[in-house]
C-alpha cells in the first residue's frame, strides 16, 4: 500500500501539483487519469522519488519516504519497478541485457542465475527468441513487454507505469493492460498506472484518481465514474462520443 499525503511539487516557482492526498491499495491496479499536461508524470515521478517534492509525504507500507536516509531509499528502490512512457530501453544493449541490467547491477548472482531469471521474466511477458535482438529491431508492443520484464526482474512490491499503452494500437494496448493487471495480482504488487485512455479505465481500473491542473478532482472506482458528480471529470470522460453513448445507455437502464 502506498499513501500519498498533501503532496505538492513546483518547478522554478511554477506549481505543478497541489496538495494531493490519496491511497493506492496492494494487489490492485490503481489508475491516475487526466489530460495531457495535467501533471500525471510529475506525480508518478514524485511518488517514486525521481522528483524531490516540496511538501507532503509518501508512505510505503508504513515507511515514510521523506524521512528515509539515502541507503534506506536505495533499499526501497530495489522493491520498485517502473515502466516508462517510451519504454526507456537501453538502445545499445540487447533485449536480454536490458532485462538483466538490474540483476547485473544489484545482485551477486552468477551469470547463469541472472540469465535464467531474465528468461523467466521474458517468458512471463510472452516473449521468446528475441534475447539477442536490439530494441530498435522489435515492435513498440514488444518493447513495452521487454520494459515490463525489466521492471519485474527484481520481483518488486511496487510497480509504476507511465502511459503503458501510449503509441500502441488498440488491440496491443489491451493486451499490455491485461498483462499488467495479471502481474499485479500474481505478484501481489501495488501498481500505479498513468493513463488518459478511457479503455484502460474501464478495462483495468480498480481505483481511479482523476487529476486536473495538478489538483485531485475526484477519486473512486470505475463503477462510480459514470454517476460521478464532477464537471471536470465529465468533460474528460465524455470528450469521446462513444462514452457519451454509454452514459445515455446507463441512464436509460437505470430508469
Amino acid at each position: 500500500m502506498i499513501e500519498v499525503t498533501n503532496l505538492s511539487k513546483s518547478f522554478d516557482g511554477k506549481q505543478i501539483l497541489k496538495d494531493i492526498s490519496t491511497v493506492f491499495e496492494k494487489g490492485q491496479t490503481n489508475l491516475i487519469i487526466g489530460q495531457s499536461g495535467s501533471g500525471k508524470t510529475v506525480l508518478l515521478k514524485s511518488i517514486v522519488g525521481l522528483h524531490q517534492i516540496d511538501e507532503g509525504d509518501i508512505v510505503y507500507d508504513g515507511d515514510s519516504f521523506v524521512s528515509m536516509n539515502n541507503s534506506e531509499r536505495r533499499r526501497l528502490r530495489q522493491d520498485m519497478g517502473m515502466l516508462f512512457q517510451g519504454s526507456a530501453l537501453f538502445d545499445s544493449s540487447t533485449v536480454e541485457e536490458n532485462v538483466r541490467f538490474p540483476l547485473d547491477m544489484l545482485t551477486d548472482w552468477s551469470l547463469e542465475e541472472r540469465r535464467d531469471r531474465a528468461n523467466f521474466c521474458l517468458e512471463r511477458v510472452n516473449l521468446k527468441n528475441v534475447n539477442h535482438l536490439f530494441p530498435s529491431e522489435i515492435s513498440g508492443g514488444m518493447q513495452k513487454r521487454v520494459a515490463i520484464a525489466r521492471a519485474i526482474s527484481l520481483n518488486p512490491k511496487y510497480l509504476f507505469c507511465d502511459e503503458p499503452n501510449s503509441g500502441l494500437d488498440p488491440k496491443t494496448a489491451i493486451v499490455i493492460d491485461e498483462l499488467i493487471k495479471e502481474l499485479t495480482q500474481e505478484f501481489d504488487m501495488t501498481t500505479i498506472i498513468n493513463t488518459h485512455d478511457m479503455n484502460s479505465v474501464m478495462g483495468i481500473g480498480d481505483k481511479i484518481v482523476f487529476i486536473q491542473n495538478g489538483v485531485k478532482e475526484w477519486e473512486g472506482s470505475k463503477e462510480d465514474i459514470f454517476s460521478a458528480d464532477n464537471e471536470a471529470l465529465e468533460s474528460f470522460i465524455f470528450a469521446s462520443e462513444i462514452f457519451r453513448e454509454v452514459r445515455e445507455y446507463h441512464r436509460k437502464v437505470k430508469k
Binding site: K45, V48, L50, R73, R74, R75, L76, R77, Q78, M80, M82, F84, Q85, G86, A88, L89, F90, D91, F101, P102, M105, L106, R150, L154
Partner: peptide, 13 residues
Amino acid sequence: VTEQIDAIDIMGI
C-alpha cells in the same frame, strides 16, 4: 529525454 537515465535512477543506481 528518453527517460533511460530515470530508468537507471529508479533502481537506486
